[in-house]
Simulated scan of single mutants.
Amino acid sequence: MNIKTNPLAANRLTEKIGYKFNNPDLLFQALTHRSAKGVHNERLEFLGDSILGFVIAEALFQQFPKHSEGDLTRMRSSIVRGVTLAKLAQDFNLGDYLVLGPGEMKSGGHRRESILEDAIEAIIGAVYLDAGIDAARTLILSWFATHLSTIKPGVQKDPKTRLQELLQGKKIPLPQYEVIDIQGKSHNQTFTVKCTTQMLADEVITNGTSRRKAEQAAAQQVLERIQNDKS
């Protein structure tokens, strides 16, 4: 759905994200991937990434006045990690509104976690340019309210560590991670990683803007599927 030519789609999306733009062109740019023609969202993504990190760091700094820099860093990383941003984008059905080039459309780019993650950061950058830091802060804190209210210092372990500890506790061999594809130029790559484990009958394949992010996303998916199998 192209929000530039479909006002109803634009209204639906702004209701979902909780912000109405003074300059709708900024939202359109935030949704435009570099594979499409015209102005894309890479610069907005860069800006939004920094603003997101700052706002979450500020919130944690105020929420936990007696905890160390290490605790605050781990908590911030657990909140702003790629898999969390991609899940947020999925909750907004953001993939339905992305503007992609023909190649990305054919390969399912509207579902790719790295593209969804980038779009969330680009929207934050767009909100900042549209209305300033206070508007961006308000939006971010509303999006991550549940994460901030439930997070606790000292217990933040990344998905790969949690999966490793789970398997070790069951005396099952550790998962195997394999990079099966790398796309893009050296400064802006997307890594595709395959994760296999005896805990699942089939493999898990995820994407990320670095090998580490892709592996963490894969581990998170494995953990979620194991949990779903139990329930």
Rank of each mutant, 00 (worst) to 15 (best):
I124M: 02
V179A: 04
L200N: 08
K106P: 02
A89L: 02
E215T: 15
N93P: 06
E165M: 05
P175I: 00
A217Y: 00
G103Q: 11
K170P: 02
F92R: 00
W143F: 11
A145H: 15
D134N: 14
H110A: 14
W143G: 06
D158N: 13
R211A: 13
Q221Y: 03
E178H: 13
D96M: 10
L163D: 01
T161N: 06
H147V: 04
R112L: 12
I172M: 14
A214H: 02
Q221A: 08
L163F: 12
G208I: 04
G82A: 14
I205F: 05
E215V: 14
I172K: 07
F191W: 14
V179Y: 05
H147N: 12
C195E: 06
T84A: 13
Q168I: 04
R81Y: 08
E215R: 14
G82L: 03
S107G: 07
T146P: 01
L116E: 05
D134S: 15
A136G: 06
L129N: 09
D130K: 00
Q189R: 15
N207C: 11
D134Y: 10
L129D: 05
S77D: 15
E104D: 15
E165P: 00
C195A: 15
T138A: 12
I133D: 04
E104K: 10
L139H: 09
L116K: 03
L141T: 13
T84C: 14
L163Y: 07
Y97L: 13
G103H: 12
L174R: 09
A135M: 02
F144R: 01
P173D: 12
V83Q: 03
K170D: 06
N93I: 08
V99R: 07
V222E: 06
G108R: 13
L98N: 02
D91I: 11
K171V: 08
E165I: 03
K87H: 12
Q189C: 05
L100R: 07
G154Q: 10
L167D: 05
E104R: 11
